[in-house]
Design a protein around this nucleic acid. Structure first.
Lengths: 343, 343
DNA sequence: CTGAAAGCGCTAACAT
DNA sequence: ATGTTAGCGCTTTCAG
């Protein structure tokens, strides 16, 4: 019972009086092996419960068939759905997926990226932490020509493939939508604007205001980390202004939700008195009361696309490399939180 | 620029005119190496941008410092939060985590488990697919004495550590709670009862009815896969009974939510006319209207516990093995969907 | 169609 | 305190 040591190709070779190379080739369906011996070998392998040692193969071939993913938080719906998309495609193509979360800490991100490299992933897919302001830890990938894809939160200065949505357009359309609904003073709650996503959403917001000849007042823009607490703090702060806003475009749905909860508790009616638009279409946004207008990112599709792209890169390493930035379509989902009859 | 080949310990050894073993030992802080040479070696390693080849080390040491996780779906809140817990502890202990999703398909689960084995994970943590009815694919782990932990959806017949919640008690207390609130005819929507979780919840439900001298009618129990569609189908079916129920205990929050949506659309008031209790405390359950009473499983904690347990097993393999089943505490969270004034 | 031999990069007895 | 040697299990020239 206690099989101390695993069965290897050598065990099979010995029993069948062939060489290990023959066994290896047979199991890999190498055409140079006769059908007869192939069958013999495969049969015995099955009988002995042989399981190939991927580690050994990896070492020899310098390929791990493994894709690394580094995200800020695994259990955020956008990221877990993205990962699910990657995993789907990767599995189909015979790749494994190894995952870590940076917890939005630059230090942990660095450690993880290092570890991914040491584990010799064939490619790395990543979305940056909120703290990431230098990119040296990715150099080992670019230097060694190991495929690297950024998604959502990207490093603009690095040469790599990128998968994003048009955050500027999102910010613009969210804001324009609120304007169209007749809201007059529109505030914005942003995340850390070192990140392209939050930066671009804010620029879109500003641009829509400008286009509509509305002033972009500094008071109306707040930056924080967009947690539930942050959302509550922000709305309190905004309501305390001597000239408070009547609508907010939030950098994510979580903060939008906490604003709604607070506004309701204050007896402020949504959308009649106050309009809200969030971002990223969390599962709760559809079912909360009032339901939250938001921008939907195609998370699963982005993951699939990232996987396809990186696998293609991995398997055509010889080809001259061209880096693309793929912009995926988003959708403004209009729900109750912004749907008042135009004033 | 094009560093064709990576820098290895041999490169460092050659330049420093020492042996590769010395380099290896130095980098691993082996006490047998003098402080002076250690520093020399580490400095050069840094300068050359040396990154250890984990694959080679893994092959040699027969340890991968990798924990495999197989769950039905990565982007389900319970699972992604569990994974996050595992990853936290694993990272601290110097372990990597590799993840796959079975998509609730037995065939895919088998493939994945095989692949995890071939990748020589040091241990495997898994929650079974809805289809899993044989367990042969786990034998290679038990046979070779590779730590294996089941959580949530477990294989009762296998010798392994198990991390669960007391689903029976959950079903019981959910049902008792509805009875306490004065609901008279309580239905149950269950998942596939081949799985311990759904089976036990149903038994708890039945037991509570029996204890309160309420009949457990077959008509009032429906089994399906608990999707949103399934929830809607189920509530329609229940309402169509000649003697319909006035409350339902649902096997998950998703189906509970879809019932609520349907009941509202029919003008049936919750909780006044109809009571609902769900399961697993999805993020939306707290914020939907009415908010959903549910049972909270400590997903993150379960993940942490699983990681601690498996790492302990991995690092004390020599010790005689004893298998434990750890039951984690749950919490009945009473919210609006079941909080009517007692009739 | 098959075998022999070398080696991926690292570690760990066993020397000295 | 350091070096020598062998080998983890597999793949892949190169030979035949």
């Amino acid at each position: 019972m206690e099989e101390k040591t695993s069965v290897t190709i050598h065990d099979i070779a010995r029993k069948l009086r062939v060489s290990a190379s023959t066994v290896s080739r047979a199991l890999n369906d190498n055409p140079r092996i006769s059908k007869a011996t192939k069958e013999k070998i495969k049969a015995l392998a099955l009988k002995l419960g042989y399981q190939p040692n991927t580690i050994a193969s990896n070492l020899r071939t310098q390929k791990t068939h493994t894709i690394g993913i580094v995200v800020p938080l695994i259990n955020r719906h956008f990221f877990s759905t993205f990962i699910s998309g990657v995993e789907d495609v990767a599995f189909e193509a015979g790749y494994n997926v190894i995952i870590s979360q940076s917890k939005d800490l630059l230090l942990k991100e660095k450690q993880i990226v290092n570890s991914m490299f040491s584990n010799r992933v064939d490619g790395l897919i990543t979305s940056l932490s909120m703290q990431t302001n230098d990119f040296d830890h990715f150099k080992m990938f670019t230097n060694k020509n190991i495929p690297l894809i950024f998604f959502d939160r990207i490093a603009p200065q690095l040469e790599a493939n990128k998968i994003i949505v048009d955050d500027f357009a999102c910010g613009y359309s969210a804001t324009q939508h609120l304007i169209d609904k007749g809201y007059q003073r529109i505030a914005h709650l942003a995340g850390p604007t070192v990140l392209n996503t939050y930066h671009d959403r804010m620029e879109g917001y500003k641009s829509a205001l400008k286009k509509n000849h509305l002033p972009a007042e500094d008071d109306l823009i707040i930056c924080n980390r967009l947690t539930r607490m942050d959302g509550q703090e922000a709305i309190k702060q905004l309501l305390a202004l001597k000239n408070p806003p009547d609508a907010v475009f939030c950098g994510n749905d979580t903060s939008a939700l906490s604003m709604i909860v607070y506004l309701k508790s204050q007896g402020i009616r949504i959308p009649e008195d106050f309009g809200i638009v969030g971002f990223s279409n969390e599962p709760f946004s559809e079912v909360v009361t009032p339901s939250i207008s938001t921008l939907k990112q195609p998370a699963q599709e982005m993951g699939r696309k990232a996987a396809e792209l990186i696998i293609n890169e991995i398997e055509n390493k010889a080809l001259p490399r061209t880096y693309q930035t793929i912009t995926m379509p988003t959708e403004l989902i209009i729900r109750e939180s912004s749907s008042r009859k135009k004033a």
